[in-house]
Design a protein around this nucleic acid. Structure first.
Lengths: 327, 327
DNA sequence: TTGAAAGCGCTAACAT
DNA sequence: ATGTTAGCGCTTTCAA
């Protein structure tokens, strides 16, 4: 491996000058610059990030914490993060926590050990106490899921409002018996979306029916299947389902089909996120579109800003109701 | 940030001794070890990977090149890679190339610049000349897609045989008019799967019909939809379709449904990969299961072996035919 | 405009 | 069993 010393020797200059050329400083005469560039070419020299990073005391790596790589919702966000990261010469380390605190802690160690310059956390189940502690020393942003009192900057959408909008749509097309397929109430977004659901019902004077609210442990396809079985078994069966995640809704769709019922004739279904697959189902899924790519770019910009030592503000992005075949 | 010096001072020993404790060397008396460990705790010391990595001339990062993060096929492989990587104290940098040589080259630079210790390439469209050149200086493994003459070690399945098995299944359940929905012939796996398709037909004395072979540019859902339209428009319409990727097959499924035809009554469909979603469609998809997780673990083991300077052998893993509702 | 030299945090060879 | 010290490859301060 050739290093900066050898380039300097070959070019007949000092390592400082080579470094200056490498970093595009304009304090180098064009004659010397050319000499150096030739030497670099001759020797096939590639500067080592290891040396540079130690010297600059940075890793130029951003940590992305997601609960599961299998949920396409996160993939679109990641693409947004990546676009900004690459343009600013950062690389991203994608870490799947499985909502497991131990795994999470291994990844937190990466920033403690200077292997990463900052974290974008998207795990709703993240240990918020640890995260807060970490946020005192390191740069951290929360994306999608967040905590109001943590002081950690976040980017998200207005979950209560989006949920209200979804349920209101169901009411407007004539439904009164509307089930809510929620995730776990320990997550802020779950509580917010439930509040939106309640507000829409109350506003239209539809009484709340606790039997119509089903909770699932995870946001997987199979959990949607299981949950919808319970809903179908209710005596006064709902005519519509609002699922707080497309994956749940897609699972519901499949199970409803299997049970011989028809969507949307017998039961209407609306999802949340607008993942790619929501357009591939039969029928296609009506859903609340989250601006995932945008959330990613904003989160990345916020994080890089924070790493540079600037203060950053929270951001609330807009959602959209996407009408398709399932309602 | 506290460093090794400060720990040494606090513990009343030399930095060498601290380093020894850090690295679990047994040449340290338990008395000193305890002193050092206490100092580490007191000072909240975390060793910097930046210093260690420069000193050891390694980054402990593995580069994973995939064409698209949206294809779930790769996600399962990545999980396998990750499991091995983490257990060996490596981290993985996931890089989506979009099969774009420029983007690819940015990522290649990471290994040239010592930001990564090796590469697992899964992009069929990778610039093989560049990869070969790189493989002379750096550790590289190909996973799933490979090149016979490159000398780059690979892990894969027997595509020809698996494809033969899929088509033979269709023949066995009574089909004679079988379409092949292939990707681009410039990819080795595409050629291999086409050969398997041909062999199965020939063996059962079914004449080859060029009209029944459709090529798609990419392995996306939408490309499956488009391709199946062409197939449905053929005068002597096929009664079965073998798609070389589940995503294509799922797109086909959806489009066939939309056209009013029924799977498998009117047209049987078989896919390839066994991605999670192949079980979520209606009907569920018969498919060739690739051992994706295993491919990942093997690839990671091979790469780490190679980084350590060992020679590694190519590996061919087993596939499986998974019968479900679509045939 | 350029060079000499210090130092980022760590490991390991060598000495004791 | 422990310490001294060189050096990994780079950037930057200071001096010329």
């Amino acid at each position: 491996m050739t290093n900066i010393q050898q380039v300097a020797k070959q070019a007949g200059v000092s390592v400082a000058t080579v470094s200056r050329v490498l970093n595009g400083q304009n304090t180098v005469s064009s004659k010397t610059r050319i000499k150096v560039e030739e030497a670099i070419k001759n020797l096939n020299y590639e500067p080592s990030m290891l040396g540079r990073n130690l010297r600059n005391s940075e890793s130029r790596i951003l940590l992305i914490l997601i609960p599961s790589i299998s949920n396409p919702f996160y993939l679109e966000i990641i693409k947004g993060i990546e676009q900004i990261a690459l343009s600013q010469n950062y690389n991203i380390l994608l870490c799947e926590t499985d909502s497991n605190p131990e795994k999470e802690n291994i990844y937190f160690d990466l920033v403690r050990k200077k292997m990463a310059d900052g974290i974008i956390s998207m795990d709703p189940a993240v240990n918020i106490e640890t995260l807060k502690e970490l946020a005192e020393k390191y740069s951290i942003i929360q994306c999608s899921e967040y905590n109001l009192d943590s002081g950690i900057p976040y980017v998200t959408i207005d979950n209560e409002e989006a949920s209200y909008r979804a349920v209101k749509h169901l009411i407007q097309i004539g439904h009164k018996k509307i089930a809510l397929m929620n995730s776990d109430e320990k997550f802020l977004y779950a509580r917010q979306r439930e509040m939106g659901y309640q507000r829409a019902l109350e506003e239209h004077e539809i009484p709340l029916n606790d039997d119509y609210i089903i909770y699932t442990k995870h946001l997987g396809f199979e959990h949607g299947q299981q949950a919808v079985k319970k809903i179908l078994a209710i005596q006064d069966r709902p005519t519509a389902i609002f699922a707080v995640s497309d994956l749940l809704a897609i699972g519901a769709l499949k199970e409803i089909n299997a049970s011989g019922l028809h969507v949307p004739k017998d039961i209407a279904v609306i999802g949340f996120d607008k993942i790619d697959f929501s357009n591939m189902t039969n029928p296609t899924l009506t859903t609340i579109a989250q601006p995932m790519y945008k959330m990613g770019t904003v989160a990345a910009e916020m994080l890089i800003d924070k790493i540079r030592g600037n203060d950053v503000d929270n951001v609330i992005l807009n959602y959209e109701l996407v009408l398709r075949e399932s309602t």
